[in-house]
């Protein structure tokens, strides 16, 4: 039984060790946080644009997501999904709900009430929120991995 316990301890130790190594690889440069924030800002700003440009901005956002995934894969040799299970969901869900609320407000004020400049102000707020959310997400992720 003792050797069984020792072997189990060693296995859990090996798991913890690789998670710590993963955490050392994981940290993103500020430009990566800014890229994510820029995508969120584009989404929130899009109602300020004319309808034809609006669809172009949304398409640009989708292309941006693909480019970020490719950038991560090239930079890290892996892709860590923001929607991963774990404590990071406590950051992901509120940030996305707030971005959604900002988009709804931007659409209401920018399109329905015809004040597109307010959409741009909300987009700036979305950028700040997404940047902060991304850095907090990373901190929670690294802590979860025992870094």
């Amino acid at each position: 039984m003792d050797s069984m316990r020792e072997e189990a301890l060693a296995a859990l130790g090996a798991k913890g060790e690789v998670e710590r190594r993963l955490a050392q690889v994981g940290p993103c440069p500020p430009s990566r946080h800014a890229a994510f924030a820029a995508l969120m800002a584009i989404l929130v700003a899009s109602p300020a644009a004319a309808p034809a440009i609006r669809w172009g901005l949304l398409a640009l956002g989708l292309v941006g997501v693909v480019l970020i995934i490719r950038w991560d894969k090239r930079r890290l040799g892996m892709f860590i999904n923001g929607y991963r299970r774990g404590k990071t969901l406590l950051v992901t869900v509120p940030v996305l709900l707030l971005i959604e609320a900002l988009y709804a407000a931007s659409f209401d004020i920018g399109v329905i009430h015809g004040r597109p400049h307010v959409s741009l102000v909300l987009a700036a707020g979305a950028f700040g929120l997404a940047y902060a959310g991304s850095t907090v997400w990373q901190r929670v992720f690294l802590r979860e991995l025992g870094a």
Binding site: A14, V18, E19, K73, M78, F79, R84
Partner: peptide
């Protein structure tokens, strides 16, 4: 199957990362 430490480590990485490249897995393990 996960009795080998390296196999347990590979899965430990893959449950965190959606995808990981061969060279990265090699380096981590």
């Amino acid at each position: 199957v996960l009795q080998a430490a390296a196999r347990l480590q590979i899965l430990a990485v893959l449950v965190q990362a959606q995808q990981a490249e061969f060279a990265r897995l090699k380096e981590l393990t």
